[in-house]
Each structure stands twice: as C-alpha cells, then as structure tokens.
Simulated scan of single mutants.
Amino acid sequence: MVLPAARAGQRLRVNGKLIPFSSWPTKIGPKGNASLQSLLFSLDPWAIIDQTIKTSCSAAARPEALACMNQARDFFEGAVDTQRVSARPLALYYCFMNLVKAFCLSRGTRPTFNKAQHGLSEMLRAPGNRELTDAFLRAFVSPNGSGDLQNFSEFMAALTGTGLAAIQDYDVPVLLPQILPGHRLWSSAANKKERFIAVHDIRPYLNKATRELWLNLYFVADDLSRIGVTITRFLAESKLGPAFVQVTCDEVDSASRELICFQQVAPIVCPNTKYANSLQSLFDSIRGLLWATVSTVPPYRRHYVYLRPASEDTQTLPQLLSIYILSYYLGSITRYRPHHFPAINDGVFGPRIQDFISGQAQQFLYLLASEFARREIAKPSIL
C-alpha cells in the first residue's frame, strides 16, 4: 500500500524551543496569554498537593480537603510498609479514596463529601464462582436516588468532565490488563499478547502560512510486528483512528529501528501567531488516549497507547480510574473476606496482584499530584 506523504510543515518551536508532549504544557497568565511550563521535580508530592489545596480550594471546603489529604498520607505509609502485608490492599484503597475526595474538593466539583459513599460494589457472577477471575465491580451514578454522592463517579467527573450516566459493571479480568506497570505479568499469566505499545515520540507541527497545528505520533515498527498487530488493528484498538492516519516516514530510533508515523487528520487553526495559546487544546486532543509511567530517569514520563478488543471498549477506563477501581476491589476483599486473599495470591495472577499492591501507591500519588497542580510532577533521580 502506498502511504500518503506527511503534511508539509515544521516542528513547532516556542521561544526557540522544541515542544515536548505534556498534559499541561502551558499556564495562563493574568493577561490571558499562555507561557510554557517545565517538568517540576519533587521528593515530596504531598507538599504540592497541600499547597494546591490551600491556594485553589474554596475556603469552605478547604478544612475537609486538608483533613482528607492528611488521612490519605497516613494510609499511604501503611500501603508502602512492607511489614504489613495483610493490610496493605486496604490501606492502599483508603489512601486513594481520601486523595480523590481532596482532589474533587479542590476542583470545586462538589462543596462537601460529608456523606459520600464508595460508589462501587464488588460481586461474583454466580454463587460458587472464584474471586478475581469471576468477579466484577458495579459502579453507581452520583448522586444516587437518596442524594448521596458516589466517590467513583465523582472522581470520573472531576477527571473527565462527565460522571456515569447509568449503572456500569466492570469485570475484574478486564481491568487487570489496563494497569500499565507490571502489564507483562498479566500477559504471561493470561497467555495473551501484550496490549500496551510505547509511544516513541509526540511532536507538534506547524504550517506558518495557514497557522495550522497538528500532532505526529511515532512508534517503533518492531513493537507492533513483535506482537502481530496490523496497522488497521492498531488504529482501531488504540482508538487513534480515524483521527490519525499513517503517513510516510523514513526515520529510525537511536538503535536504528524503523519508525512508523501517524499524523493527525484535522489540524487546529490558531487565531494568531501566539501558538503557545493553542498548545493545551492540541495536546488535549490526544491526552485521553494515553497512559503514562512516572520514573526517576529521563524522560521521567513515558507514554503508551492501550489496545483493547472491541468487546472490552465500554469497560476501558482512564488510567487513574482503572487503578482506583481495582484498588477498591482488593481493599474490599481484604476488609470483608480476608480469607479469600491468599487464594488470589496463590492463583495464576498472584504476581500481578502483588506487583499492583507494591507499585501503585507511588505511581498514583505522582500522577494525581500532577492533576492537582495541573503540571507534570516527577521524582528527581539524584538525592
């Protein structure tokens, strides 16, 4: 198949700098103009969350938000304490739950979570079914019929702008592969192909004559061929199509591996030559399709797309929501039926579950701290 040529343009530069992808590339100044934001390093993301609450949360909601944050931090210590193995899943969930309440209060989506409920219920498909492999989570609309807020749907609304429109069930086996760190443990246990494909680069391009901006996404060709994914399937299951199409590319990575380029079909037109003012909307066009890992080495954020079968599309959640809902399931088992947890750990997905419990506290904390601050937060590599 003959590929179309890439659209004519040049790499976008602002103040002479190439622009890397960021969920929050700019901040808006008092005159309404955008200025670039750099990556912010912090050994203590709790301090950033605390500062954000104090500066952005309403005065009425601030004491509640701060109390939730402080309790989340105490639960965090329990979640990362390797000596408290049996209680770690429960501590992990309550850490996340309190952080989520503080986040929603800071965003001003609700004035209080005083009588909020989990908004989730874990169940088995039928009596006698096995935990984990036959389990699902039912998520409820917020507020419910009695007017009580439901934490999960409220978190969804604060992150995405829209909560649940109706009761939704999420199968635990469908949630497991959506967790990025440790994904290959799931792939090995389930005897299935990997679903995450690393993004090699995300580049904004500009046509100065038309003031058009668009994105080019680059992937290593071997990453697709290694797991037998065709371009058509890749575009469909990553949800990049039809907004992106493959175009010609003659580039290679640092190891001389061939790259594939997908170009955004519909550019955005900037109203003037202050291109930084349009960066946020440009990057927002792809943000919902990306997963990220936070690391202590450059580039500090690595992005991925997730290939999901069509049958699982309605149960695929944004990254933070999938972490949150799975932590609820494991916390609920630990709290109400702890005798089932050893069987889960001894099962084929046991290493996947242990990896989740051990590794998600830091990931969730840094990712949500970034949401609080609306800026990429990373842990520095040298103390």
Rank of each mutant, 00 (worst) to 15 (best):
G182F: 06
Q263M: 04
S58K: 05
L383P: 13
A91T: 11
N216Q: 12
P111Y: 09
L36E: 11
H340A: 13
D169F: 00
Q264I: 08
R375C: 15
D346I: 08
I353F: 01
R130H: 14
P143M: 03
E77N: 12
V199Y: 04
Q263S: 06
C57S: 09
L279G: 01
L149V: 06
W214N: 03
L367C: 07
K192H: 11
I227F: 03
N33P: 02
H339N: 15
Q264A: 07
P45A: 07
S187I: 09
G331K: 02
R62H: 09
G78Y: 09
V252I: 08
S311L: 10
A87T: 13
T162A: 13
Y304S: 05
G128M: 07
S254M: 10
N151W: 08
K27M: 10
L224Q: 04
C270Y: 00
L317F: 01
P351A: 07
V100C: 02
E122I: 00
N98R: 02
Y304C: 03
A102Y: 02
Y275M: 07
E194R: 05
E237K: 03
T248I: 06
Q51I: 05
S35G: 08
L320V: 14
W24N: 08
G78D: 04
R138I: 00
R226G: 09
D250F: 05
S146N: 10
S238D: 05
S42P: 02
A139C: 00
R352K: 14
Q280T: 14
G288S: 15
R374D: 13
P111Q: 12
G241S: 06
P45Y: 05
Y306A: 08
D355S: 10
D222T: 13
G78N: 06
T273D: 14
H339S: 14
L176S: 00
A102P: 04
P267C: 06
I353C: 00
Q10E: 14
E131Q: 13
V245Q: 06
P173N: 05
D346N: 15
M123L: 12
S370M: 08
I19V: 14
R84M: 11
L40Q: 15
H118M: 00
A65H: 05
L365M: 05
W46D: 01
N151R: 10
P4L: 07
I49M: 04
A135Q: 02
D253I: 09
V252S: 09
L185V: 10
P380N: 11
A67G: 08
A209K: 07
R110P: 00
K192F: 09
C261D: 04
L120C: 03
L213P: 00
P30S: 15
Q71S: 07
A91Q: 13
R7I: 07
W24F: 15
K27I: 11
F283A: 06
P299A: 09
H303I: 13
A59V: 12
V252E: 11
P25I: 07
V100L: 03
F21H: 12
P89L: 10
L43D: 12
